[in-house]
Design a binder for these strands. Structure first.
Lengths: 127, 127, 127, 127
DNA sequence: GTGGTCTAGACCACG
DNA sequence: GTGGTCTAGACCACA
């Protein structure tokens, strides 16, 4: 996972978004155990409290389940729920996109055109 | 202009973005006078300091010019510069979009598809 | 508000429950400003972080809204929503009660009897 | 016995409460032998240490007795003691109930009403 | 070793 | 002054 310490988005949320992403794209699966707080903190070279906070918010969102003394686990999700979350996330992103382009006076036709000509995947299949 | 006091985006930036947007989409034109600080603050029911800060940053960005006599005016922009800013803003938005969908495991094909089927202008020309 | 530092229920949750309670029973009303983090921390003689954590969880639950630099406010709730929350809270409590008495082999008749003969209000109307 | 691994109540206490409950409601009687640590741990799919800890605390409370030959047995209890424990447990539960409903601004009249109209035994005699 | 909680103190952006 | 974030370090209960 990559962090941008200079970003205005807080570290704990970058971690949370990162883990959500890794679940949505299938790298973590329901029931998987995720790295212990201290371990991830060490790897990212940040304070364990910050990681713990990210995990805690994921628990409150129902994404993770923690067993004190046992670790944190990806919550079981009904089959198809992941797909549903992905679709929801996509809708949110597009709503945001169009809301902003509208305000900038960029026609939707032009947005579509730009999207359709955007360069393809960054190749490397991802580790 | 609409503000979201509960957003994590600071109010002063919402104001700045709003004015930039109104310039880019042509509602404010170079040389136009924009509302005085106190007036806008009253209309938005926020602290005048916040409006003043937004205006100040727009001045520092060269978007606004304050004239000695008083009042803030939209700075003159080279012909084509607005267009260039729009294009730049669009690139930024799309880069963000794809960066996030990539992380969520949503294929670009699917994003294109969703964009192409997004409903047209939902509202009339806007008040 | 009263805290029990020796309780096994964490302080931050005691604070959260306390504030939820004061909203539900009408002592705080939607739109009210609640005490600043530092002030409440000082009054309760605990660390401001602990209060902040309680407030943060209440925000995430939609009970509070915070305006950085401005304070924390009781979120606007649809009229009747408070009543609905009270009813829900009562259901939860009773479900818990009967679940436990069932397991202890105490008949419901006996529980009803004990409830109906429980002493009345602790008199003093509460400040 | 049912466990909620995600509960904030520690597992060892869930086990202890479960066994106490089964004694109070008569499913285990004084002198009965309860399942060996390993067997119960296997059945519940948890760490044997956790079961052992629960048993140990029950021994310390005088609820269980371990006999040299091996095995844990329900301690003999003075006649009427079970009944006394039940009554005490009920008082504790009701005190908790009213303490919480008071804080939520729910009148005792209303609580009584809800208790008196709570549905009867929802399940059959239980497996 | 694991997560959970709390304290202490610092810095920042906002209003 | 306000809330938000992060660090550092401590202690506890659980498995």
């Amino acid at each position: 996972m990559k962090l941008d310490l200079m970003s205005d988005v807080p570290i704990y949320r970058q971690i949370g978004d990162g883990i959500r992403g890794e679940i949505l794209c299938g790298r973590y699966r329901p029931g998987d155990r995720i790295p212990p707080v201290r371990e991830l903190a060490l790897a990212l070279r940040i304070n364990p409290n910050t990681v713990a906070r990210a995990y805690r918010e994921l628990q409150e969102s129902g994404v993770l389940e923690s067993r004190p003394g046992g670790g944190n686990f990806v919550a079981a999700a009904a089959e198809g729920e992941l797909e549903e979350r992905r679709a929801a996330a996509l809708r949110v992103e597009l709503a945001r996109l169009f809301e902003r382009t509208d305000r900038l006076g960029i026609t939707r036709e032009r947005v579509r055109n730009a999207v359709n000509h955007w360069p393809e995947q960054p190749e490397e299949a991802r580790k």
